[in-house]
Amino acid sequence: MTTFLLSVHVLVAIIAIGPVTVAASMYAPAVRAALRDPGDVRTAGVVGTLHRICNVYAAIGITVPIFGFATAASMDVLGDPWLVTSIILTGLAAVLLAAVVLPWQRQLLEEIAPGGATGPAGAGHANPAAVTARTKRLAMTTGMFSLLWAVVTVLMIARPGSTTGV
């Protein structure tokens, strides 16, 4: 059963967390591209699509820690320091995504394309310089989200101090 749970945990992590990490990292540059060409509906459409990808895969990603806890329980490692650290970092990544990245994406999308990328790109922004500055903050925050996942991945593979082997 442990092998099954671990396999599902890893597969869901790859399938759910990978796309949200990539789409989130592409978001700020896509917003800047939409600002450069405010009449191009396609660039706003890309921004809208990236935001939808982030939302959908973030929702699917909720299953990653569920299967992770089940796997850890079956391996009897719930109290191991590497796992506790991973749980804390995963929680931080989830909060960062849900409370900062996704809302900032939504705000930027509304500014460049009111109505969620159905109108012309650039139609809703009042100050392109301010929007560009916010995309830089979003890119930095998204980078922190990605870094948290990278550290969690390394901890899951290396399991420092684990007695169950590598």
Rank of each mutant, 00 (worst) to 15 (best):
T2L: 11
T3E: 12
L6Q: 14
L6S: 02
V8W: 07
H9C: 05
V10Y: 02
A13E: 05
I14S: 03
A16L: 15
I17A: 01
G18M: 06
P19G: 09
V20P: 05
T21Y: 09
A24R: 01
A28K: 12
P29R: 13
A30L: 05
R32S: 04
D37M: 07
P38M: 06
D40S: 13
V41A: 15
V41W: 11
R42C: 00
R42F: 12
T43P: 05
A44C: 08
V46R: 15
V47S: 03
T49D: 01
L50E: 07
R52M: 07
C54Q: 06
N55R: 14
A58V: 11
I60C: 04
F69T: 03
T71Y: 04
M75E: 15
L78P: 01
L78E: 10
T85L: 08
T85A: 14
S86T: 09
T90R: 01
A93Q: 06
A94W: 13
A99F: 14
V101G: 00
L109R: 11
E111V: 02
E111I: 02
I112P: 04
A113N: 08
P114G: 09
P114A: 13
A121L: 11
G124Q: 12
A126K: 15
A129D: 13
V131M: 04
A133H: 08
R134L: 00
R137Y: 04
A139H: 09
A139N: 07
T142F: 12
M144F: 07
S146H: 11
L148I: 01
V152Q: 10
V152L: 10
V154D: 01
V154A: 07
V154T: 01
L155T: 11
L155C: 11
I157A: 15
A158W: 15
S162Q: 05
T163K: 13
G165S: 02
V166R: 15
